[in-house]
Design a protein around this nucleic acid. Structure first.
Lengths: 194, 194
DNA sequence: GCCATAAAGTGACCAAGGTCAAATTATCAA
DNA sequence: TTGATAATTTGACCTTGGTCACTTTATGGC
């Protein structure tokens, strides 16, 4: 018979994430190397992979946690009171995604069906993110505004794809993020009907 | 002063793509190794990287070429005559994207702004793909049908993201694929207005 | 306390993408 | 033809993510 994950394992996991977060804040996501993480955390390489599957898995948790933290803050403020307010909040995420091309890739890869399966904490993060997306969308219905002066190619592309992602996933949320198959039909109908 | 790329270089490039295509058809995209490609093509590793930058760059050209070929075929048939016809054509792409998770990643990464910069041939491919997406969308406005029985997680996810991609990019096409910034505002307005 | 068993962690090893200084080949002017 | 220069290719070497048989540590029943 199997036993629940023990205290030590949870501590190791937390330590790995803490160290990874430190390195990211020092050198950015693209400067994050598995070897550095395990060295600083004082564990072996295999340990990291036994916790997160692969490097991207760990990044997904890191990024997801950061997004989740933002959502907690933003949602704690209640509904947006103006377009400017809404735009500011949207920009938090746009800036985050624009930081590094990798962030968007990881978010996309681990969101939706697959992301929801990997980690319960992250799944909740994405679900909340999608709920926020819906709120934003309904708020934006009356406006259609977005911050001007988006700068480099990276930002433009990240924004474009990020929005597509939010749009797609906000429809999945009408049904169940874990079952995009079931969400597909209403998604198409809503989009394709006049 | 600089000289134009010479015959030999173009032959080497063509050989690499030909060999890579062979290996993909034998073993799928995930079975494609740089070492195998250069070995079969009879060139050194560095040559491949000097041509395509990285492995994904070569894959983008390969996949882009394949997509472009499909578009040529499909567009050669003229406008779809029925929903079934349209659905069949859409399914060609869905099946293609569903083949391998990697295909979608590459398509996404190299499409849009960045894709348009890497390779003129590929840029044309994406532009035509987006044009076709618009045609499909206008055709589907009256119907909202899509093939049932989409099977594994991979397919569902690939489809979801693929659609999001088409949706976003079809709006970019209203303006200029190379300038998603300019396309963003109308994209949002069209989507968010009642 | 002691043993059986499961959980957690280890680190040598591998795979495969990517780099780059040096060698080779092609081109052109004199 | 030949020397200078640019284009192209080479392959030894490196980096880094990822694997897995094995060791260590914790837990629960007796």
């Amino acid at each position: 018979m199997s036993r629940a994950p023990q205290k030590r394992r949870l501590e190791t996991r937390a330590k790995l994430l803490e160290v990874a977060g430190e390195i990211v804040s020092e050198q950015g996501y693209s400067g994050l190397r598995v070897e550095d993480v395990v060295a600083r955390a004082g564990v072996a390489k295999g340990t990291l992979f036994s916790h997160f599957g692969d490097k991207d898995g760990m990044l997904a948790v890191l990024i997801g946690t950061e997004v989740m933290g933002q959502l907690d803050q933003i949602q704690g403020l209640g509904m947006p009171e103006s377009i400017e307010d809404l735009t500011d909040r949207l920009n938090v995420h746009i800036d985050f995604v624009a930081q590094d091309r990798m962030i968007f890739d990881i978010l996309l890869r681990y969101s939706g069906a697959i992301g929801a399966q990997t980690d319960e904490v992250i799944a909740q993060s994405f679900i909340r993110r999608c709920e926020l997306g819906k709120i934003w969308l309904s708020q934006m219905q009356a406006a259609g505004l977005v911050r001007k002066g988006l700068e480099p190619e990276l930002l433009a592309e990240g924004l474009e794809a990020f929005l597509a992602h939010v749009l797609a996933i906000s429809f999945c949320m009408e049904h169940d993020l874990r079952d995009p198959k079931a969400a597909l039909k209403p998604f198409l109908q809503a989009w394709l009907s006049p």
